[in-house]
Amino acid sequence: MLKILKYVAAAIAAGLPAGAAFAAWEVNMPVGVTELSREIHGLHMLIFWVCVVIAVLVFSVMIYSIVKFRRSKGAVPATWDHSTKVEVVWTVIPIAILVGMAVPAAETLIKIEDMRDSELTVKVTGYQWQWHYDYLDKGVSFFSRLDRKSDAARQLRSGIDPRTVENYLLEVDNRFVVPVDTKVRVLLTSGDVVHAWWVPEFGLKKDAFPGFITELWFRATRTGVFRGQCAELCGYDHGFMPIVVEVKSKEDFEAWLQEQQATTGTPAAQTAAAPATSQLETDAALTVARAE
């Protein structure tokens, strides 16, 4: 039964983005480019259709009553006012449906929380209002903030039409670059208030707190540029701290990394303020963490 529902969901899901030509009128969650995002999308469509089916049933009874049992049509009210049997039925059936829903949800949840065997670990720090990326065992780190064109256009009464700016509010100066097909573990923290790191195509969102580290992981299955935004109110420019992830092929990523390591001038130099974590130590720690 669940399987069938899942197929139905997948079929519809595949159908919905057909309207993607009208990208602006987008109505649904992206399927995304990671295993987790696809599973989450599946859960989303499953629960959505469960709700639709129940809604259709309940609403039909109501609409039928509204149309059929009108006083103006001479309807005479019945005198019954309860039925234990029916009430038991409509308590038990929803419970069954919910259990059916909870099982796949729990499975996905367990996968999401499984941080083991990550291949690349990046510490991401939120600041008011920019992100800092630190490739822990690679000695590469840099800040990433709203791109200049967007920044100019978004000023109060700037006179610049946002529609003329490409990727308005969704472009940064330094992109977060990761390799494809690699389990990337993101360690999140914050330098001031709570922020949240979110790229819809990766399916996950996690809050970043000052003084604590929260974690998430993703494995992008294709290359490309994926955009997201800070998703926790963090003050004045909360709306203006985008996240842009560029997923490169493994070779391109290595090349990029080496270039970064070599040209300490840009953009890593700007990050002198950020504490550099000793590579050796971190390696050791990661080994410990992986083993747990």
Binding site: M29, L36, E39, I40, L43, H44, I47, F48, C51, M101, A105, T108, L109, I112, A196, W198, P200, G203, L204, K205, K206, A231, E232
Partner: peptide
């Protein structure tokens, strides 16, 4: 109810 599904809420939240 959709929001209650924790994995999906990672997408919906905020």
């Amino acid at each position: 109810l959709m929001l209650a599904i924790a994995p999906a809420d990672f997408q919906y939240h905020d």
